[in-house]
Structures are given as structure tokens and as C-alpha cells.
Design a protein around this nucleic acid. Structure first.
Ligand code: ZN
Ligand code: ZN
Ligand code: ZN
Ligand code: ZN
Lengths: 166, 166
DNA sequence: ACATTAATGTTATATTATAACGTAACACTT
DNA sequence: AAGTGTTACGTTATAATATAACATTAATGT
């Protein structure tokens, strides 16, 4: 089971997360002959700044600060669209928010574990869940094309804090 | 595996679907000492009129026609909120749309198979998927509280049409 | 009848996302 | 280097989804 859940939920050198993500992104751009422009890179960085998904208008604010100029919504949504297409980020439908993907390229399940308390979102690529969903689809004669899988609850940290306070 | 997928994807006496849903709803209201008002009932009926999820503003239009008066968004959202609380309907996050639940009361997985072609959404209560998600959560020390599971693809009917046209 | 609570009406506004159109940067050919 | 097509960005306006706040009405229990 591929997961970034331990990283997300523990203290770690997050600069490495960002750098690794950026490197993967640049490689992917070369491969696909796509352009990683300053705006796009800034959005990707912002989405990797924490392990919490950001909304488009949060991105807009932070982008305006970062680039020191006014940014209109279409600029943000265009960068988001680009990064989504390349598979570098995901949209969390339940939150109308976006987050960097820790394992682009690789075929994975888009399964997220999202903390109701701190807002962190860990992505989990779980092969047997994929298989089971495929089996369930087959049984129903449903041609599976894509999926949105979002689990909500308490991350390990927040759960332990809740337990202490009892 | 509990599912309404066969019903959704085949011709059937849909009046029965609606009546059954209404009866379940009224029972549940008695049980919970909640009131099934005309507006709430109308919204529930509309959400059972087809097996396609409806957006809040589609509901607003249809409700205005049905009740023959102007309806403001809060009215619609209040009815939606009420029905969601009772577990009589679900929200499909990826679509910002709502649909009647074929098996309220029963503890189920909120798994939907949604057709990209015709828009129909079948709900599937799949125990082993639930178990697997619980296991995955346990492994990650994640306290699972709720879930959004939406599969997109082609329903049996639309898939067979696509195959014919090849 | 009266007080209390629950539901609805009404107006305004917040939040998320896109349409439409013009301009600038880039990349490729000649 | 100039011309041409393509890609990305800027800008304005607006669509689509959802909620806040407060007034009014209806139902419920005493
Ligand atoms: Zn991913
Ligand atoms: Zn947390
Ligand atoms: Zn259901
Ligand atoms: Zn279909």
C-alpha cells in the first residue's frame, strides 16, 4: 500500500516534500512537452506548502502576495486546470479544495483520509480497494472510468489529543 | 450486496420507487418526531422523480412550478438539510447534486455509480468495501467518521449503446 | 388564550467557478 | 530576422452554488 499518511501526520522536513514534488513536476513537463510557468510553479508550491488542501480563493490570496500583483480567479483556475491535467494535484470534491499529489504518474486510487479537526489530507494508493471497486463495478455491469474517494475522520495526532482530553 | 443498480438502469414502475420512498420517509418522521411538511415532501418527491441527482437550483425551478409560487434558495436548502439529516437523501459532492437514498436507516457505504453519459446514479451498499476502508483506516491510525465514494463511468445501458455504435 | 418552539418568507450576500475577449509571450518556419 | 500559429496570461463580467440575518407565520404544549 502506497501512502503518504505517515509523512502527513508526523513532523518531517517538509522542504523535501516540496522539492521532490517540484522535481517530479519538471520531469513530467519535459516528458509531456508542457510548460511549467512561474504562475503554475507558484500554485504547485503553495499546494505543497502544507498537507492541507487549499481552496481556489485561498490560492488567489497567497499567489497575489507571493507574486506581488493582483491575481484574478481565471489565472488561478487555469493553473489548477493545468496541474490537474498533468496529474500533479487532485481536487477534493467534498471541500472544493486542491492538494498536491505525492505519487503522480503511478496509477492510483485517489483515496484521501481527511482530518475533520486539523484539515490535513493524506493520500493513500490502496491496490486492493481499487480491485474491489473494479469487481463491484464489473458485477453491476458498470464501466468504471474515474473515482472520488474521500474518507473523513480524525488523523492519528488529532485522535490522540481527543483521547487525552477525556 | 445491497444495491438499487438494477432498478436504476432498467425500465421499471418508477411510481413504486416514489411511493416506497415516501412511505419510508413518513415512518422515519414519526419515529424521529420530525415533521414532513409540504415543501419537504415535494423536494423528496422531486429527488425521486428520476434516478438522476438534481442540483439545488434545478430543485428550486421544479419546486416553484410544482407549488406554483416563487421559491427562494434558502427554502430549498432547508428542505435539503432536513432530508440529509434524516438520511433520506444524499449529496453527491462531485456534482453538487442531491438524490434520494433507496435504503435509509440501514448503515451503508454511500457508494455511488454515476453514469457520465446519462447522469443516472445508482447507490450500492457494499459491506466488503466498508470493511476494507475500515481496515485501511485502522492501519493508518485514522478514525473513520464518514465517507464520500463516487464512481464515474458508463451505466450498463449507455455502455451497450457505445459498444453498438463501434 | 398564551408562551414556546419549529418552520417559512424575504433580502442580501458569500463562495466557487467560468465565459468571453483582448494582449503578450513563445516556438516554429521560412 | 520577419512572419505565423499556438499557448499562456490579463481583464471584465457573470454564472452557479450556498449561507447569513432577520422578520413572519404556523404548530405545539400548557
Ligand atoms: Zn494522487
Ligand atoms: Zn488532524
Ligand atoms: Zn443511501
Ligand atoms: Zn447511462
Amino acid at each position: 500500500m502506497l501512502t503518504n499518511s505517515r509523512l502527513v501526520h508526523q513532523a518531517h522536513d517538509h522542504g523535501r516534500c516540496i522539492n521532490a514534488a517540484l522535481t517530479r513536476a519538471l520531469d513530467l513537463c519535459v516528458e509531456r512537452k508542457a510548460r511549467m510557468t512561474p504562475t503554475r510553479e507558484a500554485v504547485l508550491r503553495l499546494l505543497w506548502q502544507s498537507h492541507q488542501p487549499l481552496g481556489a480563493y485561498q490560492l488567489q490570496d497567497q499567489l497575489a502576495t507571493l507574486l506581488d500583483k493582483t491575481i484574478a480567479p481565471p489565472t488561478v483556475y487555469r493553473a489548477i486546470e493545468f496541474l490537474l491535467q498533468l496529474g500533479l494535484i487532485h481536487r477534493i470534491a467534498s471541500l472544493n479544495a486542491y492538494i498536491g499529489c505525492p505519487f503522480p504518474n503511478s496509477d492510483h486510487s485517489n483515496l484521501f483520509m481527511i482530518c475533520n479537526n486539523c484539515g490535513s489530507a493524506a493520500e493513500v494508493a490502496h491496490a486492493s480497494i481499487n480491485e474491489l471497486l473494479q469487481t463491484a463495478s464489473d458485477k453491476a455491469n458498470f464501466t468504471l472510468q474515474s473515482q472520488t474517494l474521500e474518507l473523513f475522520g480524525l488523523c492519528p495526532q488529532c485522535a490522540s489529543i481527543e483521547n487525552e482530553s477525556k
